[in-house]
Each structure stands twice: as structure tokens, then as C-alpha cells.
């Protein structure tokens, strides 16, 4: 039984990617687009797995990283660079700018860091809104070259293949020495420092990796939509990405991919409900969070400590 469970845990990622691979052949154009967006979001959310799940640095500004990747791609293209080169430089730009956010994270943690990331997100959005000559402002940015309609299918196959590699790499990272160091930083910075973990370097690495994936996601987004507007990068988008990370299991890249596709698709699935759509959407999420998915082992392990350190009576209800 346990062997089967481990097998399942190891290989789910291949099953998920295989299922995603057959999507374009069996669905309508519209459903296919939803899946494309889901896979594109998965890259960003897996970046958040590294940042939030592994390293414990909460963020509510992830839409900004996405925006930087997308806009950078569009702007470089419009400046006359070839699309492939633009994509590469756009990912580099997003990584560089995103990594800057590691510097406030040296000193800040918890809610203070969250507020900083919210600020970063808002500043980015407002800059995009007001730098009209560069970004098109409220009109949005369009007219840059994108992958043609006929090639969309192949772009999607490429994205899923890359997603598989990213998931495997991030999972490996989580089990590696460096991943362990990131998890140590999340749990106790002083202890991690005493063990010889260079805290600042670890934080920079986490931000760099997560903004790299966000930038990549942004470039894909720009190609899928052909149009970018500051409205797609608001704080509530960031909250949705956080939700996807949490529902995927926080530090589980495969789960993150599944929840990204699922939550991207959910509002579309519920479209037949018209006005009560958002209510049912929220309800579905609440129910999901309340159900304890395979947590039995965890609960059994926590019990002995509860006996060791008695809590004040009636403290929990």
C-alpha cells in the first residue's frame, strides 16, 4: 500500500503531463485556450512554490513579475528585436528586476514582507499604466509579433514539455542540499545561519528562480493573448496565484501545476451559473480547503507533542 502511494507520488507528474498533451486533440478551441492559460499560470505558480513553499517568503505581488515578463517581451519586439531574442531578454529582465525584491527581504519577514510585495505589485502596475509611450498605458500593449494561430498547438506542446522539466527540476531542488537550506531558512533563520547557510544568498536564489519562472510565464502570456493590459496584473490576480500555490500543497510542484489548471478552468466551468458563478467558485474553494486530503499521517505525528506540551484548556475551538 505504501509502495503504491510512493509510486503514485513519484509518477503523477507524468500522468498529468500526458493528459495535458492530449487536450488539444479532443477539445474545442475555447477549452483549449483555457488549458493554455492554465499551463502558462503553472509556470508562475511553481515559481511561487520555491519562494513561498520552500523558502517561506510570502508574496502578494507575483502578478507584477508576470507583467514584467510579458511587457518586456512586447516592448523588445516592438523595438525591432527578433521574437526569440526578445523572449530570452524579457525572461532575463524579469529575473533581474524580481531579484531586486530579495533586498528588502533580507531584513523583513512575515506581514511586513507581504506589505512590501503588495507595494511592489502596485508600483509596477501604476508604472505600466502611466508610462504610456512605452507600455500603451490603459489602452494596453498590442501589435507585437505572436505565435500564429496555426502554431499555437505546437507552442502548447512545447509549454507542457517544458512544464514537465520544470516540475522535475523543482522537485529535485526541493530534495537537494540547497532546497533543504531554503526550508531551513523558512523554519528558523538563526539555526540556519548557525549551520552555515548564507541567508542572503539563499534568499536571492529563491527570488531569482521564482522571478525567472514568472518571467517565462509572462512571455507565454503575451504570446497567448496578443494583448497586455494593466488590468490583468492587479493585486487580486496575485491573490489568485497565491491561492493556486496553497491549493497545490504549498511545496508540491506537481500539485501546483494541477491546481493552476484547475483554478484557471473553474470560473469557465461554472459559466452556466451566470450571476451566482463567483459565489459557487468561492464555495468550491472553501470546501476544498476544509477537506483534509491525506493528512492522516500528519495528524498522528503531531499528537505526541500535544501531550508533551499541554495547551491551556479551551484554547482551541
Amino acid at each position: 500500500m505504501k509502495g503504491m502511494k510512493n509510486f503514485f507520488r513519484e509518477y503523477t507528474v507524468f500522468i498529468v503531463c500526458a493528459l495535458l498533451m492530449v487536450v488539444p486533440s479532443i477539445t474545442s478551441q475555447y477549452v483549449f485556450y483555457v488549458f493554455e492559460r492554465g499551463v502558462q499560470n503553472a509556470f508562475l505558480v511553481i515559481g511561487l512554490v520555491i519562494l513561498i513553499g520552500y523558502s517561506g517568503m510570502m508574496t502578494l505581488g507575483s502578478a507584477a513579475h508576470l507583467a514584467i515578463g510579458g511587457y518586456a517581451y512586447g516592448i523588445y519586439c516592438l523595438l525591432g528585436l527578433p521574437p526569440v531574442l526578445s523572449a530570452a531578454i524579457a525572461v532575463a529582465t524579469a529575473t533581474l528586476l524580481g531579484t531586486l525584491l530579495a533586498f528588502p527581504a533580507f531584513k523583513l519577514s512575515g506581514p511586513f514582507l507581504v506589505v512590501t510585495t503588495v507595494g511592489f505589485g502596485e508600483i509596477t502596475r501604476i508604472l505600466i499604466l502611466n508610462l504610456q509611450s512605452l507600455t500603451g498605458g490603459a489602452y494596453g500593449l498590442s501589435g507585437y509579433p505572436v505565435v500564429s494561430q496555426a502554431m499555437q498547438k505546437y507552442l502548447y506542446y512545447g509549454m507542457v514539455a517544458l512544464l514537465l522539466l520544470v516540475i522535475l527540476a523543482v522537485r529535485r531542488l526541493g530534495r537537494s542540499r540547497i532546497g533543504l537550506a531554503l526550508k531551513a531558512v523558512r523554519q528558523d533563520q538563526v539555526a540556519a545561519e548557525v549551520m552555515g547557510v548564507h541567508i542572503k544568498r539563499a534568499k536571492v536564489a529563491a527570488y531569482a528562480l521564482s522571478s525567472l519562472l514568472a518571467g517565462l510565464s509572462g512571455v507565454f502570456l503575451a504570446n497567448l493573448t496578443g494583448y497586455l493590459s494593466p488590468d490583468s496584473f492587479t493585486g487580486s490576480e496575485s491573490a489568485t496565484y497565491l491561492l493556486m500555490t496553497v491549493m497545490g500543497g504549498m511545496s508540491n510542484p506537481t500539485g501546483a501545476a494541477v491546481s493552476s489548471v484547475g483554478i484557471t478552468a473553474l470560473p469557465e466551468v461554472l459559466r452556466f451559473l451566470y450571476s451566482s458563478r463567483l459565489m459557487v467558485y468561492s464555495l468550491a474553494l472553501l470546501i476544498y480547503i476544509r477537506v483534509k486530503w491525506g493528512r492522516k499521517r500528519r495528524v498522528a505525528l503531531v499528537k505526541p507533542s500535544a501531550q508533551g506540551a499541554p495547551k491551556p484548556k479551551g484554547g482551541e475551538s
Binding site: 533543504l180 526550508k183 531551513a184 523558512r186 523554519q187 528558523d188 540556519a192
Partner: peptide, 13 residues
């Protein structure tokens, strides 16, 4: 100690 890591992982760190 790192409370959310296993004993082995703690030692490995």
C-alpha cells in the same frame, strides 16, 4: 531544531 523537517533532514543540514 527545524520543527517541520524530519530528524534525518535536520541532521543532513
Amino acid at each position: 531544531v527545524f520543527p517541520g523537517l524530519t530528524v534525518s533532514e535536520n541532521i543532513r543540514i
